Every structure is written in C-alpha cells, then in structure tokens.
Simulated assay, not measured.
Amino acid sequence: MSEQKEKGFSAYLKEQNIELTFDRIGIKALGAMAHGLFASLLIGTIINTLGNLLKFPFLNEIGAYATAGTGAAMAVSIGYALQAPPFVLYSLVAVGQAANKLGGAGGPLAVFFIALIAAFCGMLVSKRTRIDLIVTPFVTIVVGVTAAYFLAPPIGAFASWIGNIIIWATEMRPFIMGILVSAIMGIVLTLPISSAALAAALGLVGLAGGAAHAGCCAHMIGFAVASYRENKIGGLAAQGLGTSMLQIPNLLKKPVLWIPAVVASIINGPVATVVFRLKQNGPPISSGMGTSGLVGPIGVITGWYTPSEQALAHGEVAMIPTAMDWIGLIMVSVVIPAVVAWIVSEIMRKKEIIEPGDLKIEV
C-alpha cells in the first residue's frame, strides 16, 4: 500500500512538473537567482553610480526603482527556472519582496529557500480547480509570505553571521583568508553552481569581496589564457568574459586541468588582500562574478564611489581611487591570473600533463 501511495505521489509530482532534483534546485534555480539579482540590484547600483558621477538625479531615480524590485526579481527568476506555471510565477513577486525585506542583509538566501517553498506549494495546486485564478495565487502568496515571516529572519541572520565571520577573518588574517576565499570562490565559479548567488547570500564585501573577486577572475582569465592554443580568440572571449564553466566537460574527464587556474587563484587572493588591499564594496553579487561581462571590476569601481548597504554596514566609505587602486584592480582582475595560469599551463604541457586538445571547448 505504501509503495502504491509513493508511486501515486511521484506520478502526481511528475504531472505537475515538480522535480526535486539537485540539477533543477541547486543549479538552475540558484543560478537563476543570480540573474534576478543582476537584473535588479546590480544594474540598479551601476545606474545609480552613473547618476552620482554625472550629477544626473534622474539616473539615481531609475537606479532606485531597479533596486527596489530586488526581492521580486530573484523570486520570479527562481520560479522561471523551476518552470512554474504563470499564476505561480506572478505570485512569487509578493513572496520575493516579503522574504527579501524580512531576511535583512541575508535576504538573497532567504528568498531562495522561501521562493522554493512557495513555488512548490503553488505548483501542487496549479490547474487543479476551476477557480485556478484564485486558488493558485492564494496558496502561493499565503504560504510564501507566511514562511517569510517565520523563516526569513533566522535564515537571513544565519547567512549574515557566516558572511560576517568571513569578512572579519579576512581583515584579521588577510594572507591566509585571501588564499582560502579566492581558491574556494574560484572553484565554485567554475562548477555548475552560482558563485554570484553564494557571494550575494553571504554578503561578501570589503577585503573578503576583493579576495572572492580575485579567485573568480583567476579561474575565468586563467582558463581563457591556458586554453588559448586550443580555443584562440573565440575561446578567450567566451571564458574570459563569459564563464569558465565551459571547461566542465574537460575537467570531469581530467581534473588535473584545474591546476593552472587554482594556482592562479591561490596567488591572486593574497596579492589582492595584502599587496593592493583591494576591496569590493559594490553589491555583494559582484564579488562572485569575476570578469563575466566585466561585472566584477565594475562592482569594485561602483564600490569606490557608491558603497553598497552591506559595505556601509561594515564601516566602508566612499573614496576617490588612487593610481595604485586602478593598478591593483587591473593586476588582480587580468594580469596576475593571465601570467600565472600561462606559466603553470606551459610547464604542465612540457611535462605532457596537459596534452593537445585537453582544454578544447565548443564555442
């Protein structure tokens, strides 16, 4: 009897297009959340910074409207990745706004979990009644906002606590934490999960944000340069300005190919935190973007002129960058990853650890 019920429930989930898999939840939904952040908070911050630099208040108003929709944009993006039906998707606007507000500084992580709960419940009842127009939005919003009231504050507080520890530890031990944060974030960026969402959820700013930026750049630029022989200009742009995830098929077959990028991140991290004291004080999502669309460097620049709320909360202030700040940004974002990864990859090629075609990607 229990097996029949299990089969019946599984069949019902399949019929409602509900997949409780790591691919849909841990990869697609988490990555989509980062897209929602990009299309609201990040782009709004960039527009706001332009308004400040150009002394054009209308741009500041546009930026404010964009950032105000952050919670909704994240939740809708998650729902879209889950292939939620229309009434569930639209209803996630209210759920995302509530979860983001109640989650405080750790809002992105709260939105992620609560949007999943609300979408799941909404999809369970979607198109099952003749009054779907009422039932599905009602269930999605009531369940989602109720969950936000009870779960968003502790989830947000936990995310902020972890992020604060990382930020504090990086300030106290910039060399060691520079290595650890850079290496870990670089690896996460290359894996099929979202480093941008992780950085946003933990609120990584300041030196910790700089270390995360260093690691992400090391993997993107590192793989782009190390694989130049195979992929030429197209591969350089696809990985250096797109994503190093393109190397995943090659890394699964031969994990040793990760060495040039990992070594670059290990070196680049402490250079960022100790030598240049590079801080990423823009939106935390920028800390996990690297050179993808130049979002990481742009985040550092906007953080100089218009620090994010998370950065301000940690005592960071607006500044006028010096020549050394610009040099540090260029060195950490491009030069050091390129040089280190190229040297290591050439040594590995001479020792035949990397063979011709190992790093070839489909562009």
Rank of each mutant, 00 (worst) to 15 (best):
Q310L: 08
L329Q: 06
E316F: 13
G315C: 07
E316I: 00
M331L: 12
T306P: 00
P307D: 12
T306M: 05
M331I: 03
A318V: 02
D325R: 01
I320K: 13
T322H: 08
L329H: 03
V317D: 10
I327L: 15
T306Q: 07
L312Y: 05
E316L: 05
E316C: 05
G328V: 02
H314T: 05
I327Q: 01
P321M: 12
I320C: 00
G315I: 06
W326P: 02
S308K: 01
G328C: 03
P307Y: 06
M319W: 00
G328I: 02
V332G: 07
I327D: 01
E316Y: 14
S308N: 07
V335S: 08
M319F: 08
A318K: 02
T306H: 06
V332S: 06
V334S: 04
M324V: 14
P321V: 12
T306S: 09
H314V: 05
L329A: 07
Q310I: 10
A311F: 04
M331H: 01
V335A: 12
I327F: 12
P307S: 10
M331R: 00
T306L: 13
A323K: 11
Y305K: 11
Q310D: 14
M331S: 02
M324I: 13
M331V: 08
L329G: 02
T306K: 07
A323D: 08
P321A: 12
G315P: 04
L312M: 14
V335G: 06
H314A: 14
V332I: 15
I327N: 01
M319S: 14
M331D: 00
Q310T: 10
A311M: 07
A313Y: 04
S308W: 00
M324R: 08
S308H: 08
A313W: 00
W326G: 08
V335K: 01
H314Y: 14
G328K: 02
P321Y: 09
L312A: 15
A311L: 03
E316V: 00
P321D: 10
L329I: 15
M319C: 08
T306N: 14
P307N: 12
W326Y: 15
G315T: 05
V334L: 15
V317S: 14
A323C: 06
A318E: 11
E309M: 12
G328R: 00
Q310V: 12
L329R: 01
T322K: 10
V332D: 08
V317N: 13
S308I: 05
H314C: 11
A318P: 04
V334W: 12
H314K: 15
M319Y: 07
V332L: 07
M324T: 11
G315M: 07
A313K: 11
E309V: 13
L329M: 11
P321F: 06
A313R: 10
A323S: 14
G328H: 03
S333W: 10
I330Y: 04
I327W: 02
M331C: 09
S308R: 02
V335W: 03
P307F: 06
T306V: 12
D325F: 02
E309R: 11
T322M: 06
I327A: 11
T322A: 10
T322D: 08
H314M: 14
T322W: 03
I320A: 12
A313M: 11
V335D: 04
V335T: 05
T322R: 07
G315N: 05
T306F: 07
A318S: 15
A311K: 04
T306W: 02
S333M: 09
A311C: 10
Y305C: 01
I327H: 01
M324D: 04
Q310W: 05
A311Y: 01
A311V: 07
